[in-house]
Simulated scan of single mutants.
Amino acid sequence: MSIRPYQMGDEVAISRIYNHYILHSSATFEVEPLSAGQMQERIEKYTKSYPWLVYLLDEQIVGYCYASQYHSRDAFRHTVEPSVYVHQDFHGRGIGHALYAELLSQLAHTDCHTIISAIALPNAGSVRLHEAFGFTQVGHLAQVGHKFGQWIDLGYWQKTLN
């Protein structure tokens, strides 16, 4: 296993992982799958300021994580929103935890001060992951997303870096 920064060409595997969540999960509120090209554009935009990491197992990308700007207004410039996705066949192996640990380590060496994570609820696994890293729940919005014919709540977890 290894974790490394995104490299050109990774967007194919990344988009496959993410598209599974788009099509089969409420973990993301996106509803249309992304092409590898669309994913590459997104990655290039985010990596101008923040890390985008992939997890390799036997040279196959089985997970990824990244940070993006929390909000476009300038006063939010020290606040990021993280995301982590693990291939559906590799859940429960500590991949998300390893990715998050590396992402938080890298963010600690930037001008990032606050990390705010939005979690579609219910999602016990994601809540456990965030709380294991010291995030605390700071908000809950009821029925703000609509996907698969049902209303979805959104919880907010926050961590301040030292």
Rank of each mutant, 00 (worst) to 15 (best):
I3V: 15
I3T: 13
R4F: 11
P5T: 10
Q7Y: 03
M8W: 03
D10P: 05
V12S: 06
S15A: 12
R16V: 05
N19E: 11
N19W: 03
Y21D: 12
S25M: 00
S26G: 00
A27W: 00
F29A: 04
E32R: 05
P33Q: 08
P33C: 14
L34Y: 04
A36K: 04
Q40T: 08
Q40F: 02
I43Y: 06
E44C: 01
E44L: 10
Y46I: 06
W52E: 08
Y55E: 09
D58W: 00
D58S: 12
Y66W: 10
H71Y: 10
H71F: 03
R73I: 14
D74G: 01
A75L: 02
E81V: 07
P82L: 09
P82C: 13
S83D: 10
S83W: 00
V84H: 11
V84D: 04
V84L: 13
V86I: 12
Q88I: 11
D89F: 00
F90C: 06
G96D: 01
H97R: 15
Y100V: 13
A101Q: 15
D111C: 05
I115N: 01
S117F: 06
I119W: 00
A120F: 01
P122S: 14
V127I: 12
R128A: 11
R128F: 02
L129A: 12
L129H: 13
H130N: 02
H130D: 10
E131T: 13
A132C: 00
G134A: 09
G134D: 09
F135S: 13
F135A: 14
T136I: 11
H140R: 10
V144R: 11
V144K: 08
H146Y: 15
G149H: 02
Q150T: 11
W151L: 01
I152A: 07
I152Y: 10
L154P: 07
G155S: 11
Y156P: 13
W157H: 08
N162Y: 03
